[in-house]
C-alpha cells in the first residue's frame, strides 16, 4: 500500500466520519444513532490503523484496537443494553428542525476549515487535511449535545465529540502517547458505567430521561 493510496483512503474515512456525525445529528431513533456511533468508531479505528501504517508508529495499532473494542463493541453494547432496559428503543425523539440543524452543521464544517487552514499550511503530515474534519466532528458532537433533550443521545453526542478529539490527535500529531490514550479510554469506560447507573436512577426517580425534567427539579428547589 503506497502512502498516496493510504492518504486517499484516510481521506475517505475522514469523510465517512463526518458523514456519520451528520447522520447522528439528523437521526430520530436512539438505536439508529447508536449504530451510527458504532460505525463512526469503526471508521476511526481503521483510520488510526492506516495512520499507524503510514507513520510507522506501532503504538497506533494498539490505539486502533482499543478504539475498536471500546467504541465499536463495548460502549455500544452497554448503551444498547441500557436502551433496551429503559424501554426507549422505539421512542422517537423530537429533533428541532433538522434542515436548520444541518445548515448549522455545514456552517460549522466551513468554520473549522477556516480555523485549521493555517495549520494545514504549516503541517507536513500526510493526515493534515483531515484535521478540519476532526475539528468539525468535535463541533458536531457538541451541536448534538445541544440540540438533544434526551440523556442517552446526549451521552452519545459526548462520545462522538471524544471521537473527534481522538481523530484530531491522530491527524495533527500522529496520535497522543499511548499512556494518555489508555488513560482516556479507561476514563470513558468508567464514565459510561457511571452514566449507565446514573440513568437508571434518574429513570426510576422521574420515570423519564428527559433532561428537562431535571431542570424542572431545580426550579422547584
Amino acid at each position: 500500500m503506497s502512502t498516496q493510496l493510504a492518504a486517499q483512503i484516510n481521506s475517505l474515512l475522514a469523510a465517512f466520519i463526518l458523514l456519520t456525525a451528520f447522520a447522528m445529528l439528523a437521526q430520530r431513533k436512539k438505536l439508529a444513532i447508536l449504530h451510527l456511533f458504532a460505525w463512526q468508531g469503526l471508521f476511526l479505528s481503521v483510520s488510526t490503523a492506516i495512520v499507524g501504517f503510514v507513520a510507522k508508529s506501532h503504538h497506533l495499532y494498539i490505539s486502533s484496537l482499543l478504539t475498536l473494542t471500546l467504541k465499536v463493541v463495548v460502549l455500544p453494547y452497554i448503551l444498547h443494553v441500557l436502551i433496551r432496559k429503559l424501554k426507549i428503543r422505539k421512542e422517537i425523539e423530537a429533533v428541532v428542525n433538522v434542515p436548520t440543524t444541518m445548515l448549522i452543521g455545514i456552517a460549522l464544517v466551513i468554520f473549522s476549515y477556516h480555523l485549521t487552514a493555517p495549520i494545514r499550511e504549516l503541517s507536513t503530515l500526510v493526515t493534515r487535511s483531515t484535521l478540519a474534519v476532526a475539528l468539525a466532528t468535535v463541533m458536531l458532537g457538541l451541536l448534538m449535545m445541544i440540540t438533544r433533550r434526551h440523556a442517552v443521545t446526549q451521552i452519545i453526542g459526548f462520545l462522538a465529540m471524544e471521537n473527534g478529539l481522538f481523530f484530531a490527535a491522530t491527524s495533527a500529531t500522529y496520535g497522543m502517547p499511548l499512556v494518555v490514550e489508555l488513560g482516556v479510554a479507561l476514563d470513558i469506560l468508567i464514565a459510561a458505567f457511571i452514566f449507565g447507573i446514573f440513568f437508571f436512577h434518574i429513570n426510576t426517580t422521574f420515570d423519564s430521561l428527559d433532561v428537562d425534567q431535571m431542570a424542572r427539579l431545580k426550579e422547584e428547589d
Binding site: S11, L18, A26, V98, M102, G105, I106, I110, S129, A132
Partner: peptide
Amino acid sequence: VTEFLGSAFLFATLGMLSFFILE
C-alpha cells in the same frame, strides 16, 4: 421528501466541501 432531498443536498455539499478540505 423535503428531508430526503435535503439530505441529498447535504451529501452533495459535503462532497463539495470535502473536495476543498480533503483533496
